[in-house]
Structure formats: structure tokens, C-alpha cells
Design a protein around this nucleic acid. Structure first.
Length: 612
DNA sequence: GCCGTTTTCGGCCCGACTGTTTTCAGTCG
């Protein structure tokens, strides 16, 4: 049983305990265990087998003797005594009821005991008949809201991709900012933490118009924004609404003095905050969205900035991407947080397309755009012939294209030597603008001649080895079209790793972030093979295509993989998507040293798998 | 059920909003 399934069963048990009105702290321990189990990079079932190391299991925070026994039972039998016991009292289908808005464990339990409601269909019927009305706190308004919630749930239990959510956040922010006296609008929540999908949008707004005595007017402005589809709630300083696409937006208007506390609070994650507040209490403080206060006299210790709050709790500042209660608080206390990777650490992008296949720009345009963004080298990797719909190259074209790429690279080198061309132009522009950290360029920009080759059924590439030998860098990718099962795709990639020309494994997961059922290729197996053969693994920054999750990135690092972050850009502006990729790398606690395209080109080329 | 440089027992996070209420329980983030 894999960790994800283990975590799901523990979490379900927690939900059943909630419906059963069990000890809330016992429930919390099941929830906590579920979360930590999900975050583990090694399969826990290997720790409990005959030659497993139970000590390692008990070393995981939140897992004690009882939980270890539960995990052992789950792995061995697929269930555990407590879960079975609860399932004789309640139905598994009731867990789905908890996902409806406004439905919590108490309500689910009440509906079951009063009306024997076990699932969403029965709930809908009962609500339509008006059976809910006699129950406490369930009037017409509650019933209407519930029916709407059921409808929404059936339509799409929707989450939004981070790049889409960011765009919506900007649109809404622009309109809010039109109100005079609003200075700062920051997206908080999972968007700020960089999760690859977000359920709703949290916008924190501050400025003179948000001070308590005048905030009502600004709230009115927000509550009447033209893009609101449905107003959900409206409080003294909070407005919630839906956009037409179903995305829920929560806007909070906050006084400047407590903005840091609010930002900290609403960025979450929930579990990070819980642990942080426990730490506050141990030190005689209490932490809320308004301030860190001393308990004995309510004196405000810190409130205006997040840094103050973390420092007052004797912690280094914790980047939002790390705030998942996965050991970051302990690491911050020991001053052992990693120096996370930033965009300026990236020196090369080894996966992009031009008009030669399905890209929109020329070799020169891609190179100039990369130079503009501070890169030192790129690889042009157009598609090979298997992907006919992209205009993929056959052997002859691939070789001719490589010659053009090298010619362009040489031209840039000549321009560089003559102190003209895009590298010097950028330098002079930055110098003139007084940009900090502006240095004279020292090495000519390099364009490597590459190809994004397809892996055939037998693991060979769809171009001849003679052709591959004439290119600088080979990205090997699996594209669909063979109608294979995930297991077969995994096998195909493993065979491809044995091909000595393969240097970079392109978008290895085939995963689409919002697909409900993840594509079940065996990623750890692929990563292990890549590590064994010295093949670099690409983290693809384009969230619309596929990439490695933060958990898989941690696995890649632990397995000793060479990791590369690429954009897979099909147009110059897509080079900026590197930011999406970097956020996931940061969430995986990776530093510049964990990647190879953070190195200067010579070191990078030396780190690639040697050519036969 | 977990956890411990104050503890192996007694703790375990905070506040706002909603609906149906005359003081609050439940849900949510």
C-alpha cells in the first residue's frame, strides 16, 4: 500500500471519528499522521515488513506506537480495527457529505441519526422535500444554500491551476485598487505558498482606506465589484464572492499596523499556523491575525511584518513556500533552513522550441529573449519526426537545424567579442538605469544544438544514433500516441535510459496538474534509472503540460538525480514560466546547488552524461 | 493519539461569520 493510500485511510478514519464525536485531540492526531505520511518520500510499508526498521517509523513526528500499529495493520490487511468498528456505525459514503459547503461532522451525524441520510443523493431528496426544516438550525436559507452547494459540487469540485489563479488575482486586484486609499494588495493562502493548484483566492488589502473607522466604504466598493457573480458573505472587513468561473475570492481589508500578522495568518498553511501558535503559547504569547501579544498584559510584541513575528518567536524568517508544517519550524529554530533557489540562480534553459517545429519564434529571437532574462546559455530542442503534428524534424532536417543553431551561436560570440550585440546592449541599459548587481558580461552566450526526441516502443529514439551524435544535447520525452498503459510507458522510459545518447529525461511524469486521476507512471522507478545512468531529470515549468510534484522533486534529490528546471517554451514570453517551476523547487526545499543548470556552461556540460 | 530542557500526566490554536438565534453551536480558514 503506497503512502498516499495510507494517508487517505488515516484521514478518512479521522473524519469518521469526527462524526462519532470522538475526542478532538485524538482526531487531530489522526489528521496529523495522515499529513506527515503523505509527505514521506520513502514508502512506509517497507519500514514495517520483516526486515523493516520500525524505529524509523516512530522517528516521524506525529507517529507514535498506536499510529505505527495502525499503519502496520493498514499495510498488511488494507484496513484496521478502529476503521472497521466505525464503519459498522456509519457509512463510508457519508464522508462525501463533509465536502459540501456548510456541512461538518455534527451536521452529518445529526442527519444520519434523525433522517438516516447516508449520501448526497438522499440528502438532496430530503432537502427538496423540506425534511430538513424541522431540524435545529436548518431553515429555508440553510436548505437553499445546501442545494446550491450540491449542484456546485456535482458540476466540478473545482480547483484552479496556480497560473490561472494568479491571473484572476491580478484582475480582481486591479479593480480593488481603483478605490482611493488602497495601497497594497497581496494574494495570500495557497497561491502565496506556491501550491500547484488552489481552491480559492485570498486577497489581503491594506492602506489608509482600510483603517477601522473608514473601512466600511472600501468594503462597499469591494462588495459591488462588477465581476462578482455571486456575493457569498460580507462582514465588517471581509467580503467573499464567486467569479463567473466558480473561483471563490475572499478579500480582507486590514489596517496597516497589523498587516504582517494578517499576512502570516492568511498565508497558512493551517497546520504551520497551529504549530506556530503552540510555539507562541510556550513562550507566554498568543498569536492571532492581529498581532503577536504577550498573554499577561496583552502587550503587542509584533504585528506589522512577518519577519518581526518569526523573529520574536526565535525563528528565522520562513519563506511562504516552506510553510506546510513539514519540519520548517524546527529547521528555522536551529537556523538550518536551506537557502532556496531563486530565478537569478538559473543560468541555462535546455528545452525550448522554434518555428522549425511548433514554436512561434526564431533561434535568434529565443536567444535574445533568454539574454534579456539574464541566462548564459540555452538549448534549442525542436521536436523530432514522430510528432508529425508539430512539424517534427527528420534526421536530415535535425542536422541542418543544428548547423543553423551553431551558426547563430557563433554570430553571438563574434558580436560579444566585438563588444556589441544583445549581451552588451543589456549591460549598458542596466548600467544606465542604475540596476543593482550589474556586471560586465564575461562569457559569450551559447546556444546548444539539441532535439526533443521521442522514445519509441522499444526504447530507441526516433532519430538515428548517427544524427544524435552530431547534436550537443538530447532531451528524450515520452509523448502519447501509442495507447499504452502507464506500466508500459514506465517500461519504455526505463529502456530509453539504457540508450547512451539520452542525456535529459523530458517532462518525465506525463502528469497534468488538474487531472483528477493522476497518470500512474512509476516516477520513483524512472528517477532511480535516471540516477543510475547519470541522466538529468527535467522539472518542466509549464504547468499546462506536466512536471514533477514537490514530493517527486525531493525523491529525485534523495536518489541523487541531476535535476534541471526547463521552460519548454514555445514562444519568447513563455521563458518567464520558469517562475512556476522555481516555486515547486522551492517547495521541495531545493537550493541552487541541487540543480545543474545553475552552473556555468562548462561545468554544466561536464555534469551531463558523457556522449559515447 | 502524541508529546515532554518546566511534564510519563495533562496538556493539546484563534477568531469571524452564519443561521436561527435571544446567547450560541457549528463551520471555516
Amino acid at each position: 500500500m503506497d503512502n498516499i493510500t495510507l494517508a487517505r485511510l488515516l484521514d478518512e478514519t479521522a473524519a469518521l471519528l469526527e462524526i462519532d464525536a470522538a475526542d478532538p485531540f485524538r482526531i487531530r492526531s489522526y489528521r496529523r499522521a495522515a499529513e506527515t505520511v503523505e509527505q514521506q518520500t520513502t514508502p512506509l510499508e517497507t519500514l514495517i515488513g520483516p526486515d523493516g526498521d520500525v524505529k524509523q517509523l516512530l522517528a516521524i513526528p506525529g507517529i507514535g506506537k498506536g499510529m505505527a500499529a495502525n499503519i502496520r495493520d493498514l499495510a498488511a490487511t488494507g484496513t484496521m480495527p478502529l476503521r472497521e468498528e466505525l464503519l459498522t456505525k456509519y457509512r463510508a459514503s457519508m464522508l462525501e457529505l463533509l465536502r459540501l459547503p456548510g456541512m461538518g461532522p455534527k451536521t452529518v451525524a445529526l442527519l444520519y441519526s434523525a433522517l438516516q441520510i447516508e449520501n448526497i443523493d438522499q440528502l438532496e431528496e430530503a432537502a427538496k422535500r423540506g425534511d430538513l426544516l424541522p431540524l435545529p438550525r436548518m431553515g429555508q436559507k440553510f436548505t437553499d444554500k445546501l442545494l446550491k452547494g450540491i449542484e456546485d459540487y456535482r458540476r466540478n469540485a473545482s480547483r484552479f491551476r496556480i497560473d490561472d489563479a494568479r491571473q484572476h488575482a491580478e484582475r480582481v486586484s486591479e479593480l480593488i485598487r481603483q478605490f482611493p486609499g488602497i495601497e497594497t494588495i497581496t494574494p495570500a493562502g495557497s497561491l502565496r505558498r506556491g501550491k500547484e493548484s488552489v481552491g480559492d483566492l485570498d486577497l489581503l488589502v491594506t492602506g489608509p482606506a482600510c483603517e477601522p473607522d473608514v473601512v466600511a466604504a472600501a468594503v462597499e466598493h469591494v462588495a459591488t465589484l462588477p465581476l462578482i457573480d455571486k456575493l457569498l458573505a460580507r462582514g465588517q472587513n471581509k467580503v467573499s464572492f464567486n467569479l463567473r468561473n466558480g473561483l471563490q475570492v475572499d478579500v480582507r481589508l486590514l489596517p496597516r499596523a497589523s498587516y504582517g500578522a494578517a499576512l502570516q495568518y492568511f498565508t497558512g498553511s493551517k497546520h504551520h499556523n497551529v504549530t506556530l501558535r503552540q510555539r507562541a503559547i510556550k513562550r507566554g504569547y498568543t498569536l492571532s491575525e492581529y498581532a503577536l501579544m504577550r498573554l499577561e498584559d496583552n502587550k503587542i510584541i509584533a504585528a506589522a511584518s512577518e519577519e518581526e513575528i518569526y523573529n520574536a518567536l526565535e525563528l528565522d524568517y520562513i519563506a511562504p513556500e516552506l510553510r506546510e508544517n513539514c519540519g520548517e519550524i524546527e529547521a528555522a529554530a536551529r537556523h538550518e533552513l536551506p537557502k532556496l533557489i531563486t530565478r537569478s540562480d538559473i543560468r541555462g534553459d535546455l528545452h525550448m522550441h522554434t518555428t522549425e517545429s511548433d514554436g512561434s519564434n526564431s533561434i535568434r529571437e529565443m536567444a535574445e529573449a533568454a539574454i534579456e532574462r539574464g541566462l548564459e546559455y540555452i538549448a534549442i530542442t525542436d521536436h523530432s519526426k514522430l510528432l508529425t503534428m508539430t512539424g517534427g524534424m527528420d534526421d536530415k532536417r535535425a542536422i541542418a537545424h543544428a548547423a543553423r543553431i551553431r551558426a547563430e551561436s557563433n554570430r553571438l560570440a563574434e558580436e560579444f567579442a566585438a563588444k556589441r550585440g544583445p549581451q552588451w546592449a543589456r549591460y549598458e541599459r542596466r548600467l544606465k538605469a542604475g540596476e543593482p548587481n550589474t556586471h560586465e558580461p564575461t562569457v559569450p552566450f551559447r546556444i546548444l544544438a539539441g532535439c526533443e526526441c521521442d522514445i519509441l516502443l522499444d526504447g530507441a529514439m526516433d532519430l538515428e544514433n548517427d544524427t544524435l551524435a552530431q547534436l550537443d544535447v538530447i532531451v528524450a520525452s515520452v509523448h502519447s500516441g501509442f495507447n499504452q498503459t502507464p506500466e508500459e510507458v514506465t517500461e519504455r522510459v526505463l529502456r530509453a535510459c539504457e540508450n547512451p545518447f539520452v542525456q535529459i529525461l523530458g517532462h518525465p511524469t506525463g502528469r497534468k496538474v488538474l487531472k483528477r486521476e493522476p497518470y500512474k507512471v512509476d516516477v520513483p522507478k524512472m528517477l532511480a534509472a535516471a540516477a543510475k545512468y547519470g541522466i538529468a531529470v527535467e522539472h518542466n515549468s509549464n504547468p499546462a503540460r506536466s512536471d514533477l510534484s514537490d514530493l517527486q522533486l525531493r525523491q529525485a534529490k534523495e536518489l541523487g538525480c541531476k535535476i534541471i528546471v526547463n521552460t519548454d517554451a514555445h514562444a519568447i514570453e513563455e521563458l518567464d514560466q520558469i517562475d512556476n517551476g522555481i516555486v515547486q523547487l522551492r517547495r521541495a526545499w531545493l537550493s541552487a546547488a541541487d540543480l545543474i543548470n545553475t552552473q556555468p556552461i562548462d561545468a554544466f556540460l561536464a555534469a551531463l552524461r558523457p556522449r559515447p
